[in-house]
Amino acid sequence: MVDEFWFAMEVLISGLLQGFMYSLVAIGFVLIIKSSGVFNFAQGSMCLFAALGFVSFWEAGLNFWVALGLALVMMIVLAVVIERVVLRPLVARPPLILFMATIGLAFLLEGLAQALWGTQPHGLELGIPDSPLEGLPVDISQFELFAAAISLLLVLALVIFFHRTRVGRALRAVSDDHEAAMSVGISLQMMWGITWAIAGGVALVAGIMWGTRLGVQYSLTLIVLKALAVLILGGFNSITGAVVAGLIIGGSEKLVEVYLNIIFGIGGVESFFAYALAMFVLLFRPYGLFGDEIIDRV
């Protein structure tokens, strides 16, 4: 009985830690939706682009921090280019069109990343062992703990940035009301560039974390699909929501997967469970757990 309890705890904890990594990707979406209302499907491709760039710089013999800095600069440049080339001409178009544009962007970035740095998977080793911590009744991977800590730090940093700095306030103003923000002298283009740059930075962190896990390769773009479920469960425009939903989905899907397999012998539920859960919750809370309610006026 005791063993079973610890086994369940172990499954739950590893799920929760995985959940942190989901939220890491989901936060990238939230940032962009919050400030520009664009549903950025290219977030996963940005992760791939950033991680591939970073790994290639690192493998070229650069110092770890130099490579990280270079990759960050690259993502900032990319953000500025995206703002100029894609977003600016599409200002004030319906959201569906912008969404489709980011799907195009996702294809483009995927192709570009692989054309620049090759298609073969790169291993990524940060020097943190993926082995269990000792002295605990349950197995908890050191790497997962580390990743969770990084995500928490990132979330804290973002929250502080959004609430305590001048630029952060400007970003929130833009997300509240574009026109009002412009009328008090906030440059929309500047703010969008900054948001996309931050989202690029988040993509870099997420890409490195997931890259360590899965290897830096094409399949990185697929983590978006889990992050989307996290996103709608938490609500589109809430960073807190992204974290909480990440934990809920990470924890519950591992438990469900493991126990359905043990009890009924049905496997692979993990592939859609997150969506089923999100859909169920949305039936009761159509704007996610923490999302702003949209009120239609005629």
């Binding site: 894609v86 799907i103 996702a106 483009l108 192709g111």
Partner: peptide, 9 residues
């Protein structure tokens, strides 16, 4: 991929 994405945009 690049051309497809680019053309969509």
């Amino acid at each position: 991929l690049i051309v497809f994405g680019g053309l969509i945009i």
